[in-house]
């Protein structure tokens, strides 16, 4: 039904933050990542505690297109191999996936909230303009 994937060489520098490198076939993959990316003017390590539920981006639903079920699809593999010479990837992160092999059903989701946190206004001359 599915083809066999043949890869000669894989070079991946880093796999971080629910990134996945999967070799081999999968039936189902469900991946979720929630990240709070905070740039702070300075920090006190170990004193940080922010609940993700305070932010709307982690609770609101993301519209994902639904796959229609095509029952009449027929696949004929004249060549049963997918061949790739070399894969070179610097980074895989935030519920991203490098999958060598076939997969039946895949659902990935990620949410990121960015915050730039200053203790004093970085541009005091533009404060009256509301920037």
């Amino acid at each position: 039904m599915y083809r066999t994937s043949v890869v000669d060489c894989v070079i991946v520098n880093s796999v971080v933050d629910t990134g996945v490198l999967q070799t081999g076939d999968s039936e189902k993959i469900n991946s979720y990542s929630a990240a709070l990316a905070i740039h702070r003017e300075n920090t006190k390590f170990g004193t940080f505690d922010v609940p993700l539920s305070k932010y709307k981006v982690f609770s609101q639903s993301v519209l994902v297109p639904v796959c229609p079920s095509i029952k009449t699809k027929q696949t004929y593999n004249a060549n049963p191999y997918i061949r790739v010479g070399k894969i070179n990837i610097l980074g895989i992160s935030s519920s991203a996936l490098l999958h060598i092999g076939s997969v039946n059903d895949m659902t990935l989701q990620s949410r990121v909230k960015h915050i730039r946190h200053f203790f004093t206004h970085p541009y005091p001359e533009s404060e009256e303009e509301g920037v």
Binding site: G19, I87, I89, S93, A96, L97, L108, Q109
Partner: peptide, 8 residues
Amino acid sequence: GVSLSSVV
């Protein structure tokens, strides 16, 4: 880079 629920 592969990030934010992307797939290769």
